[in-house]
Write a protein that binds this DNA or RNA. Structure first.
Length: 897
RNA sequence: GCCGAAGUGGCGGAACAGGCAGACGCGCACGACUCAAAAUCGUGUUCCUUCGGGAUUGUGGGUUCAAUUCCCACCUUCGGCACCA
């Protein structure tokens, strides 16, 4: 097969892209979820058909809408609607969750991704935050001094877009939304330390965002460059590469296809840290995130090789290749249509063809140009290059399959061993010279396709006979040998290329942190002096529907004087990408009102680094990569310590609507946490969110399912508050032993599951234990020390999950010392968890045929003889001796007949 | 094409380190209470069955006394990257 195969765009794929686009237009929840966040959506939706969709779902939504919120729990005194706000107020008054430095205790910095103040807390926020809160509470009970802060990622486009529509100033809208969301966040009963709150749009905060920009600028990590950048025509701003999504190349926020524009923009030199960002040593992050980041950085190893023009031996054309072992097979060279040398090398005869091709390439969008199924096109430049390894004269072509943005914008084409080059050579009838002979085929006829695989180098001068394989880089003996030789000959050297690009941070918008730079004709660009920070956003701005940044249109704001010479100068009117604000917010929590620097070092030394970070995976190649870069840059500036800001990362999944689709207002499948809290209480909602799915997977919401959690909560309440001690009988000793065993087994599991973020099994363990406690109560356990211990431990285990009901029972019903949230996490009594008598299944030929009951510490021999003595086993043995008997002590006996 | 993840009852899910598959919950069925309903409580609930059993963790192989778990191949779904030289 010759020409690159056509890859028809399937219906499925089109649908997927459309869905992606649609999703991109949706509101953001935590930080800035993007279509990437749909990951879990479709997985879950696809996993189990969509059977339960419409009727029931509509019924439920209708019911929720119609019903005025009212307590569902009737006839008993459990009343979360009263009890929860009461405790929230008391905890706040008592500053129960204030975290201050305490050198006598180990610290634990639990961070959850800060929300964007969209106006309403979404169920997704609850899903991310309440289990994180429960875990932070657990850590606190374990004796850690826990910092669990909250803030708002308050700059950003939605507020500005809304302002263009209705004229309400983003500042006003944002701070109103924050006020509203604070109330909602409080209703979660979370242990946020509100005194550490930060708001990124607050001048007190963005002063330091600007300050960091200048730091990076002074380190040479911020630079201004004219380049072809991605532009979202709807949001009227440039975007970072990370914010352009998928093969359709749409805006991460609004789903509009981006276009290219040549603009001067500010960049951060993130690529300087590419190699370091590939190293995840010392951090416990999900493999998935590490893989995404690794792929995003896209390191490839190879060599750069110096060709020169036939017409000018002093010229140098550098190419990058991952296959230096195929250098002898280079039969032509291809330049990108944007290559700067083109004008110089094109011959007069070819000029018109080349110019026409360049024009055509420039007119095409990236999508058209990079379409996979497009047939290769190109034009001969008339020029020839000399291959330095064998001094062959090879023609130079231009083709749009070579990108200026990767490598050097010029390639050596080896059609015999590269599919793209092969297709191109076939089309334009260029020579194909095999230089790797497959080990299997001794004499192969004319190549039908590019050969990529193990083999022996041929037609390769001094390297004939050298073995090559498919390994990349120096691990491949052929490549290693050629690289060494290139370096010795001075015609090339080992080299690494990355897909990763520098971070474009300029945004042509108003509602962001100003880029604190000033331009004057004499001294060029200079940073605003530190004592003049922050550069404040002007408040009196006009909203024009043109979409132009009001900063640009403001009559006076941009006028200033040059900090170097005092000449008239203008301010940069672009603002910073909001991901810049969120790259360091975890540092501002340490001392949100500190004014001598971005943070107080004393606080830093105590709290940093972040011990656990929780949030959505949609930020894998955006926020989570930016913040790592930022930390490393600050480390090199001597501002931070250590190589990584966040030691452990865990991602929650996504809560879908009941119709198994992503929740959205337009679909009408949104589950509002406020409604749920009014109806069931925060404790129930918290518990259900922890219970109803694996936290890292997420699942569709199930409004029936929550009933189980409602029942559980009620049963908890009744067990602890119902004074009836039903049994007159004295409990059997084994009842109490069993109760105690169950309690400690549960404690062991719950402790382990909290450590591992396995929240669903925490709840099921607690449900199980409650069922056992009901039975024990029936059996007369009430009033015994074992019963009291069970009660105490149960509440302590419940406290992180359902902080209000646990406090109410502990403090008010049981009159224990306030607060349960200041109690120590109980210790597992290992001895109590052990069973005395165990039931062991006996397998005969792999099938369970009998069960025997033996003492837990019975020896293998005892177990063996008990098993062989059992009737069922004797039946299968039919009097014969077993071939083999395996005893897994305490677990199982396996008899082979 | 490359890289990664997942697949267990009607549903969400459980199974610590290879050892009883289906914990816990939803739903459903039956029963108790009730004039009745709701709520609550109790019992049952993977499938097939000739009631002896048999099958069963996406499919097919393999290792093992024993596999949801380890290995190989494949299928499906999801995600990321992609004319990346």
């Amino acid at each position: 097969m010759a020409i690159a195969k056509k890859k028809p765009v399937t219906k499925k794929k089109t649908a997927r892209v459309a869905a992606k686009k649609a999703a991109a237009a949706k509101k953001r929840t935590t930080l800035k979820p993007s279509p990437k966040g749909k990951a879990t959506v479709k997985m879950a939706a696809a996993k189990k058909g969509v059977k339960r969709a419409a009727p029931k779902f509509e019924r439920v939504v209708a019911a929720i809408k119609a019903e005025p919120p009212q307590p569902v729990v009737k006839n008993i005194s459990y009343n979360p609607q009263v009890m929860e706000p009461k405790w929230q107020a008391k905890w706040e008054k008592d500053k129960l969750y204030r975290s201050v430095i305490d050198n006598s205790r180990p610290k634990h910095y639990a961070l959850t991704m800060l929300p964007y103040p969209s106006g309403d807390l979404h169920i997704g926020h609850w899903y991310a935050m309440t289990p994180s809160d429960a875990r932070a509470r657990f850590k606190r009970m374990q004796g850690f001094n826990v910092l669990f802060p909250i803030g708002f990622d308050a700059f950003g486009l939605p507020a500005e877009n809304a302002a263009i529509k209705d004229g309400v100033h983003p500042m006003k809208r944002t701070f109103q939304n924050i006020e509203r969301m604070r109330k909602q966040l409080r209703s979660m009963g979370s242990m946020f330390d509100w005194e550490r709150q930060m708001v990124s749009a607050d001048p007190e905060y963005y002063k330091w965002t600007e300050w960091f920009f200048i730091k990076l600028y002074k380190m040479g990590l911020a630079y201004r460059k004219l380049s072809a950048v991605d532009w979202c025509p709807k949001d009227n701003t440039t975007l970072a590469r990370e914010q352009v999504i998928g093969e359709e190349r749409v805006c991460e926020r609004c789903g509009t296809p981006v276009i290219k524009k040549d603009l001067e923009q500010w960049f951060f030199k993130a690529t300087k840290y590419a190699d370091e960002l590939l190293n995840f040593d010392g951090i416990d992050w999900p493999e998935r995130v590490k893989t995404l980041q690794t792929n995003w950085i896209g390191r490839s190893e190879g060599a750069e090789v110096y060709f020169h023009l036939e017409s000018d031996p002093s010229s140098v054309i550098t190419v990058f290749t991952t296959r230096p072992d195929t250098l002898w097979g280079a039969t032509f060279m291809v330049f990108s249509p944007e290559h700067p040398m083109l004008d110089k090398i094109t011959t007069p005869e070819q000029r018109s063809a080349v110019d026409a091709y360049k024009l055509q390439a420039a007119r095409q969008s990236d999508i058209e140009r990079e379409a996979l199924d497009k047939e290769k096109t190109g034009v001969f430049t008339g020029a020839y290059a000399i291959n330095p390894v064998n001094h062959e004269r090879i023609p130079i072509w231009i083709a749009d399959y070579v990108l200026m943005s990767y490598g050097t914008g010029a390639i050596m084409a080896v059609p015999a061993h590269d599919e793209r080059d092969f297709a191109f050579a076939r089309k334009y009838d260029l020579p194909v010279i095999p230089v790797i002979r497959p080990l299997s085929a001794e004499d192969s006829g004319p190549l039908q396709a590019a050969y990529i695989g193990d083999g022996v180098m041929v037609n390769s001068g001094p390297f004939n006979g050298t073995q090559v394989n498919t390994e990349k880089g120096r691990k491949n003996p052929g490549i290693a040998a050629v690289i060494d030789w290139l370096e010795k000959e001075g015609i090339g050297k080992e080299s690494v290329n990355y897909r990763y690009r520098d971070w474009l941070i300029s945004r042509q918008r108003y509602w962001g942190a100003p880029i604190p730079m000033v331009y004057c004709d004499v001294h060029g660009w200079n940073p605003v002096p530190e004592d003049q920070l922050p550069v404040l956003l002007p408040e009196n701005v006009e909203w024009k529907p043109t979409g132009e940044s009001p900063l640009k249109l403001h009559p006076t704001w941009k006028n200033t004087t040059c900090p170097v010479g005092g000449e008239p100068a203008v301010r940069e009117t672009d603002t910073m990408d909001t991901f810049m604000c969120s790259s360091w917010y975890h540092l501002r929590y340490l001392s949100p009102h500190y004014d001598k620097g971005p943070f107080d070092e004393v606080e830093y030394n105590y709290w940093m680094p972040v011990d656990t970070y929780t949030g959505g995976i949609e930020h894998a190649t955006m926020h989570l990569l930016y913040t790592r870069f930022f930390h490393k840059a600050l480390r090199d500036a001597g501002i931070t310590e250590g190589n990584e800001p966040m030691l452990q990362l865990r991602n929650q999944g996504m809560v879908l609507g009941e119709d198994h689709e992503k929740m959205s207002k337009s679909r009408g499948n949104v589950v509002a946490p406020d409604v749920l809290v009014n109806k069931y209480g925060a404790d129930t909602v918290r518990a259900y969110l922890m219970f109803f799915a694996r936290w890292d997977m997420g699942a569709p919401w199930d409004s029936q399912g929550i009933e189980g959690t409602v029942r559980w909560m009620r049963r908890v309440w009744i067990l602890f508050t119902d004074p009836v001690a039903p049994a007159m009988l004295k409990p059997q000793p084994d009842v109490l032993r069993n109760l105690r065993r169950k309690v400690h087994q549960t404690l062991k599991r719950v402790t382990r599951d909290f450590e591992n973020f396995e929240f669903n099994t925490i709840i099921s363990s607690l449900m199980e234990l409650l069922n056992e406690m009901y039975k024990a109560r029936e059996a007369g356990a009430v009033g015994t020390p074992e019963w009291d211990e069970a009660n105490e431990l149960y509440l302590k285990m419940l406290a992180p999950v359902c902080p209000h009901i646990a406090e109410e029972i502990w403090t008010n019903q049981m009159c224990k010392p306030y607060s349960i949230h200041q109690q120590a996490w109980p210790r597992v009594d290992e001895a109590a968890t052990k069973e005395e008598v165990i039931e062991i299944p006996v397998q005969v030929n792999g099938k369970v045929r009998a069960r025997i009951i033996v003492a837990a510490e019975a020896s293998e021999d005892e177990i063996k003889s008990a098993a062989l003595a059992s009737e069922a086993v004797r039946k299968y043995l039919e009097g014969k001796e077993p071939k083999k008997v395996i005893v897994a002590k305490g677990r199982l006996v396996s008899v082979v007949v």
